[in-house]
Simulated assay, not measured.
Amino acid sequence: MSAVTELARKLRPGQVYRRKDLARWSTAVDRHLRQLVAKGRLEKVANGLYMAPRRTRFGNAPAKPEKLVGRFLGDERFLMVSPNAYNGLGVGTTQLHNVPVVYNHKRHGRFKLDGREYDFRMRATLPAHLTEEVLLVDLLHNLERLPEDASSILPKALARARGMDRKRLARAVRDFGSARAERLLSPVLHST
């Protein structure tokens, strides 16, 4: 059995691999990667990042964004937020956004992975899960980046904050918030 065939047998459909992960199974990794891409056994989704295609009756399925981002970062500690989620808070945002934001500890900037753009932003601390409170804090942090008028969104966001659990909101501000979000939410958190 050839070395490239042996490498191909280790690939699992839908999985994302870093070049360095595949190098441990190959003595000529770059040549083998070129051959596997040419045969359609791998797709290059970014520099040094490959996906074993998962075939469906509609064609090859894209990689799951969480797998793609996790392998790109080489770290599973990240929080992916679609600004579309702000619309669910009921504070007047209605725009649809195509660029998810990935809060993480390693990378900063916009990167294209598997044909889709992601906005990576480094943060010192990350919440384990995206809760309603974290989402509201994130919205307040990104108020100027929204296409809607911030002066109409802010009062609705603060009214929404008043209806949230104060302890969980305070924890979201402490663990994930910016100085701006903390300042804006201070009257809500410290009112009696």
Rank of each mutant, 00 (worst) to 15 (best):
G163T: 15
R121N: 03
V134M: 00
R107E: 02
A157I: 03
G109N: 12
K112T: 07
D149S: 11
V134Y: 09
I153N: 08
E132A: 04
R121W: 13
A150T: 13
P147Y: 15
L126S: 04
R162I: 04
I153K: 09
T131E: 01
F111L: 03
M164N: 15
L158G: 12
L136F: 02
E117R: 06
R107L: 00
F111I: 12
S152I: 02
G163P: 12
V134P: 08
D138V: 04
E117W: 10
E117K: 09
L146C: 01
A172K: 10
L126H: 15
L143W: 09
G109A: 03
L135E: 03
A157Q: 15
K156N: 15
P155Q: 15
K106I: 01
M122A: 03
E132Y: 07
R110T: 14
N142H: 13
L113S: 12
D119Q: 12
L113H: 14
D114N: 13
L139D: 05
N142Y: 14
L146F: 05
E117I: 05
G163S: 12
R168N: 10
R162G: 13
D165P: 03
T125F: 14
K156P: 06
A170H: 14
L136R: 01
V137G: 02
D114M: 00
V134H: 09
L154K: 12
E144Q: 12
R145H: 09
R107F: 03
L126Q: 09
R162K: 15
R160C: 14
R166K: 13
D138W: 09
R145G: 11
R116Q: 12
R171C: 00
R107V: 01
R107N: 04
R168P: 14
H141W: 14
H129S: 11
R168H: 08
D149C: 02
K112G: 00
R162A: 09
R166L: 15
V137C: 00
L154N: 10
P147M: 00
R107T: 03
E117G: 02
L130P: 14
F111R: 08
K106H: 10
K167Q: 13
L139R: 07
T131V: 00
R110L: 04
A159Y: 07
R110A: 05
D149Q: 15
L139W: 10
S152C: 06
L113I: 08
K112V: 01
A128N: 13
P155L: 00
H108R: 07
I153E: 04
L146V: 02
S152G: 06
A128G: 09
E144N: 12
P127N: 04
A150E: 11
E132C: 01
L143E: 07
K167L: 09
R171A: 11
E132T: 06
P147C: 00
T125Y: 11
F120W: 04
P127F: 02
G115N: 01
R160N: 10
D119H: 07
H141N: 10
D165G: 15
H108D: 05
T131C: 00
D119G: 07
V134W: 10
A124K: 13
K106S: 07
A150L: 01
R121A: 03
K106N: 06
E132K: 04
G115F: 00
V134E: 00
K106P: 03
A172M: 10
R162E: 09
I153F: 08
G163M: 05
P147F: 05
E144R: 13
E148S: 08
R116A: 07
R171P: 05
A170T: 14
F120L: 01
